[in-house]
Structure formats: structure tokens, C-alpha cells
Nucleic acid binder design. Structure first.
Lengths: 133, 133
DNA sequence: CGTATATTCAACCGCATGGTTGACAAAAAG
DNA sequence: CTTTTTGTCAACCATGCGGTTGAATATACG
């Protein structure tokens, strides 16, 4: 069940890793569109677009309403929330730059592993290719 | 240069789409680790882990400090910011509550997302004229 | 009815990915 | 100097992915 969450993130990030699919989602953010309408802006076959849409569907990002022969695709953004939450967890790393003081504090707080890493960092800052003791 | 941004997102989301790599990043969020330390928790060869780390590096998520024969890997989270921003763009879609059709579906079909297609078809027989542009 | 339209499906192609193993290189340890 | 440790590289394998084409399936239209 932890596994389940991971698989959802797999599918989400994997779906988002393709520029065509991201563009499709952006276009669906405007309003729902048929498969043909979704495919139109891209220089790919309808079958190719259909596959992309299926990937988005499997990731839960698109819901399909079949009405006659037209399949209307709607944006379903909830799964993105999990991804955003995962990323949010790292906010402090791009907000607060890892500086020397923090590294020093961490070295004194925790075990030898952190201390070694800090020493390495310090040594490297001082002399580029000299090895430490 | 718009292209450039897209490529960065490609690399980012693609890097994040693998559970092993996400776990590596989580472990690096704690403190920097050597390649061997990063590989240890997983049941894969060192060479396999090395490849994962290279993917993370190419996505800009990991910086490597070579000190002697030890390669120490540091988390470099800036690239995640772009992904978080992209996702944030859709916040209103997952904030916004389920619409009438969704509510109807939930009432009829208790919670199982997998069988939504059939429920949709059922609901469609009733509300035929909804929401086409 | 027959035909045009919207979409999927199946088979295939080329390339990337995640994984392995077996050298290999460089630094540390003895 | 020799051995051990740390990690990469190259080759290989199986699988998946993005793309195609061509046929199949419904549905709508005249």
C-alpha cells in the first residue's frame, strides 16, 4: 500500500515526462477536447495521439466521456497533487542554499558519515586536488 | 529557449519517474552519500546504481564531489522548482471540488476508480447534453 | 442502404531504459 | 609493490516507449 503510492507517482511523473503529453494537458486545462482535437496541433498520427491519451488516462490525468463516436477528454488533475506534494518536500533545498554553517552544525550533530562529508567539502573548498587526512 | 525549458522538464520528470531514483533523492535529502552508500539499500549492482545516479546528475538533481576514490553525491533540488511550478499551474483543478457528474458517479459507483468507464456510460445515458464546446 | 468520420487495435520499427556481468582505473591500505 | 576498495565503462539482454501503417469497429450522414 506504500507501494501503491509509489506506483501512482511512477505513472504520474512518467506521464508528465513527455512534452506532447504535457502540451495536451495544457490544452485540456482550457476546455475538454475530443481525441482528434487533441491530436491536431501535433505532427503525429491519430493512433499515436491516442496512445498518449491512454497513457494520461492510466495516470488518472484524463477522464474520457464517450458520446457516440466522439471521445471527449477532460482534465483530471487530482493525481498531480501527489506529485506537487512530493516536490514540496524539497522546497527548502531550493529556497535555502546549503551553506557552510548548516553543514558544520550537521556535522557536529550527527554521526561520522556527515562529519566525513563536511570535512570533504571543506577540504575541497580549500585545495582542489589535495587529499585529506 | 522555450524548448530548453521543456527539455529540462522532460529530464526532471523522467528522472523522478523511477522509484529507485526517488528513494535515492530522499536519502540524499538527509545528508550527502557516496555512490556505494546510495546503492546499498537496493538490490541492484553497483553499476546499476551508478547509472541511476548519472540520470539524476543529467537532470541536475545531484552534484558529485570526487575526493580520492570516493564520489560523494549531494542533493541539488533547484530543478525540482520548475516541476513544482508547472504542477502548481493546475492547483485550481484539484482544489476545485468534483462537479455534479462526478458527485453522481460517486453516489452510484462506490469509490472504485477503475470501473469509472462503465459508470460514465451509465451516467451518460441520463445526462446526454452536457459540456461539449 | 452505403459511405464518410472518429477512434482504437495489432503489428511492427528503432531507440532508450533498467538491469546484468566482466574488465578496467585510480586511490587507499598493507 | 601488491592487494583491496570504490567506482566507471563497455557490451549485452529484455522490455518499454514513441512512432508508424493498415485493418477493424462504431457511429453519423445522405
Amino acid at each position: 500500500m506504500v507501494d501503491k503510492k509509489s506506483e501512482r507517482l511512477d505513472a504520474l511523473f512518467s506521464a508528465l515526462s513527455d512534452p506532447t503529453r504535457r502540451a495536451m494537458l495544457e490544452s485540456l486545462a482550457d476546455h475538454p477536447r475530443s481525441v482528434g482535437e487533441l491530436a491536431a496541433p501535433f505532427d503525429i498520427s491519430l493512433a499515436g495521439a491516442s496512445k498518449h491519451i491512454q497513457v494520461l488516462e492510466r495516470a488518472g490525468l484524463v477522464r474520457r466521456e464517450v458520446s457516440g463516436r466522439v471521445h471527449t477528454c477532460h482534465l483530471e488533475a487530482q493525481p498531480m497533487h501527489a506529485g506537487a506534494e512530493w516536490l514540496r518536500h524539497y522546497e527548502r533545498w531550493w529556497t535555502r542554499r546549503l551553506d557552510a554553517l548548516e553543514a558544520l552544525l550537521q556535522a557536529e550533530d550527527t554521526g561520522d558519515r556527515a562529519r566525513r562529508a563536511t570535512a570533504t567539502r571543506r577540504a575541497q573548498a580549500r585545495t582542489k586536488s589535495r587529499s585529506r587526512k
